[in-house]
Amino acid sequence: MTKRVLLIEDEPNIIEAVSFILSRDGYDVKTHSNGHDAIEAVLARAPDLIILDVMLPGRSGFDILRDIRANEQTADLPVLMLTARGQDTDRDMAERYGASQYMTKPFSNADVLATVRDLMTP
């Protein structure tokens, strides 16, 4: 069964690149590009894993993460956070709000693939 990945990211080039490498590896990648209705997208798509950017238009990635963890249906979903700010406070926030993994942009494609694979291995 194909694993479904939901990529929540607003930067078109990054969406393009991440979608490409994950699709190439056999994942079903769906994308969403703003923060306003991100949680609805999550519920609608029911993905196996979420890749979540921090700086999103409309709503911060951390807030979205908190909502995911607060919702029974999505509380156990693996969430990989991506951020371009690369500061320790962001890493702390991600941990506190329950991110499964945290990566700083720019990342290597191989790392993203390996992390996604790890997170979805029961």
Binding site: A17, K105, P106, F107
Partner: peptide
């Protein structure tokens, strides 16, 4: 600084990701 970091990292991310894709040449 945080903004600069963000503004620099975003294009870098694209450049790195796509250059890796091009390098691998797979699919």
């Amino acid at each position: 600084l945080s903004q600069i970091s963000h503004e620099l990292r975003t294009p870098m991310t694209s450049i790195r990701a796509f250059s890796e894709i091009l390098r691998d040449g797979k699919g």
